[in-house]
Structure formats: structure tokens, C-alpha cells
């Protein structure tokens, strides 16, 4: 794409929900009988007669979950006997050169898109959705809240809409997901279709949802038709210059993406605040990476 890579990104897997849990405590009563209420404990004590006259009742807090990390274990074991089973160590991210280049390039692009968007007075992030299999970008968007005067048109939401429209176009062209007949391969993700260029994507109200702002977007759109298939954004990679907000992170869960790479973290973001990518209660999880640029330029004085 003619992008000048300014350096190598280091990928740090973001902690999963359990790794971030802090000491949470529950009040418990330790006594010889199973008493649930203070009144019952007092009753019990009263029945013991003089022997218990000087007994002191104290309330101690103890952990209500088993520890998940070594750090939690060291802190929590002081209070209460807790069992700690070391995790099967999560392996450091193993990337071959091609994949590393694909990730680096897309992170460089979102970072540059963001800079350009910022200079135009926007404040949100820039996002690319890519295919891990083809190692190619599919769609991209900057934050459109300012342009469209709509507080919810974040870059992630715009990208999800674009992917959906690509799916719809496929359908219009007579290719219906599972029934897609493709001569030389069984692989649904290799469907070869000629991409239809669209000037903009109309939303339900008929106003343009996304207009191309960046000229380099065109070759990305060209790839678009080929690489999405199957269920929504299932298994796709999302590259974002900023950590997505709660709405966007949950939209990524609904869309069933595979991996999220973001550069700048945010305290109110869906990953930092709620670990939305790794919550057991949700029906889909994805791996999130916070990516830091180790720029050679930054090292020179």
C-alpha cells in the first residue's frame, strides 16, 4: 500500500477478566454452629451460659473467589486459606514474518489515519478490519461522529456496517452464504467475486453512512468482496488506533471477531473497564492486544 512503516509494534496480550480481578470479600461468621444471622449467633452465645460471657464476635473479610494469578494468591493467602493452581502459561504471541508484517502494516495505517483525522478536527479512532487468513485489510473507517453529526458513528461501528454491506452485496449477486457454489475450492472464504465499487453506504434512513475520506482506502475496498464470508465478522481481525468504547467492544462481540489490536488504551474502554473480550458470561470471546510502537526514530536523541 506504499505505507512507510515507522517501526515495529510490540504486541501485549491484554489481561483477561480473571487476571484483573481484585480482592473481593464476603462477610463470614466462624462459629461452631451453622448460623446465618447475627441474632442466631447471639442466641447461641446466650445459650452457652457463663463460659461464653467474654466471647468476642469479630467480622473478618475473606476472599470469595479462588485466586487466578500468582500476585492475587500472594495477597489473598494472608487472609484465608486459598488454593492456587498455576495456569498453563499462556505462550508469548508467536508470529511468523508475514503475519508480523500484516499486523505492523495495519497498525501503522490506523495510526496514520488517526493522525490525519485528528488534523481535520475529529477526535475518535481509526479502524481497519482485516482477514487473518488472507492477511489483508478488508474495510477501514475513521471516526464519523463529527462528519455525520451522530454520536454513535464510531469507526468500529462504521466498519461493521461496511462488512455487513459487503455481505449484502454478495447476496444480491446471487451468492447465498452456505449455498455459495464455487468451482475450484470448497473454502467459503476464497469466494472470488468482482468487487462492486460503491460511492457510499446508505443507512436505513437513506443518508450516507460512510463516505471515503482517505484515498488509499480504494485498494482496501477492492479486496473487500473477497474475504468476508460466513457469519457477520466471524474470526476477523480489528486494528484500532484507540481502545474501543464499551458500545464498540460489545458490537465486536455481537459480530464475533477473532482478534482486536489497539494502540492507545483508555480507562473507560470496553477492554480496560469491563474485560468485554474475555467475560465468561458472554457467548463469544476474542483475544485483545495492546500494541506499543518501538520506533527507531524515538530512540535517536
Amino acid at each position: 500500500m506504499g505505507i512507510e512503516c515507522r517501526g515495529e509494534y510490540i504486541l501485549n496480550r491484554v489481561l483477561v477478566e480473571e487476571e484483573k480481578q481484585r480482592l473481593q470479600t464476603q462477610d463470614v461468621y466462624i462459629c461452631k454452629i451453622s448460623a446465618q444471622q447475627t441474632s442466631r449467633i447471639l442466641q447461641f452465645i446466650a445459650l452457652q451460659g457463663t463460659e461464653w460471657e467474654s466471647a468476642e464476635i469479630s467480622v473478618q473479610k475473606v476472599p470469595s473467589f479462588p485466586p487466578y494469578t500468582k500476585e492475587q494468591f500472594d495477597e489473598w493467602k494472608q487472609l484465608w486459606p486459598v488454593a492456587y493452581r498455576p495456569l498453563v502459561q499462556l505462550k508469548p504471541v508467536q508470529l511468523d514474518d508475514d503475519e508480523r508484517a500484516y499486523i505492523n502494516e495495519n497498525l501503522s495505517v490506523v495510526s496514520q489515519l488517526q493522525a490525519k483525522s485528528d488534523s481535520e478536527g475529529n477526535r475518535g479512532s481509526a479502524v481497519i478490519v482485516g482477514s487473518p487468513k488472507a492477511r489483508e485489510a478488508i474495510v477501514q473507517s475513521t471516526d464519523m461522529t463529527h462528519t455525520l453529526v451522530h454520536p454513535l458513528k464510531h469507526a468500529v461501528m462504521c466498519c461493521i456496517s461496511k462488512i455487513a454491506d459487503i455481505e449484502l452485496d454478495k447476496k444480491k449477486q446471487g451468492c447465498f452464504g452456505d449455498q455459495c457454489t464455487n468451482d475450484n475450492t470448497n473454502d467459503q472464504s476464497e469466494v472470488q467475486l468482482v468487487p462492486a465499487k460503491r460511492a457510499h453506504t446508505p443507512d436505513i434512513a437513506g443518508t450516507p453512512l460512510v463516505t471515503e475520506q482517505i484515498s488509499s482506502a480504494n485498494d482496501i475496498e477492492d479486496n473487500a468482496m473477497e474475504f468476508t464470508s460466513g457469519y457477520l465478522c466471524g474470526g476477523l481481525d480489528v486494528f484500532s488506533s484507540k481502545e474501543p468504547c464499551v458500545m464498540c467492544c460489545m458490537a465486536l462481540v455481537h459480530s464475533r471477531i477473532g482478534r482486536l489490536f489497539f494502540i492507545d488504551p483508555s480507562e473507560s474502554g470496553g477492554i480496560s473497564y469491563y474485560s468485554i473480550n474475555s467475560r465468561k458470561a458472554l457467548n463469544h470471546n476474542f483475544t485483545a492486544f495492546q500494541c506499543t510502537l518501538t520506533s527507531t526514530q524515538n530512540l535517536t536523541p
Binding site: L152, I160, S161, A164, K171, I204, L232, H254, S255, R256
Partner: peptide, 14 residues
């Protein structure tokens, strides 16, 4: 819409 984020609330807001 083939878009998992087109919930009733967001459709109405748009």
C-alpha cells in the same frame, strides 16, 4: 442487514 449491531434501539436512534 447482516449486521449484528442493528438492534432495535440503534435502529430507532439512527
Amino acid at each position: 442487514t447482516k449486521n449484528g449491531s442493528r438492534h432495535a434501539e440503534l435502529v430507532a436512534i439512527d
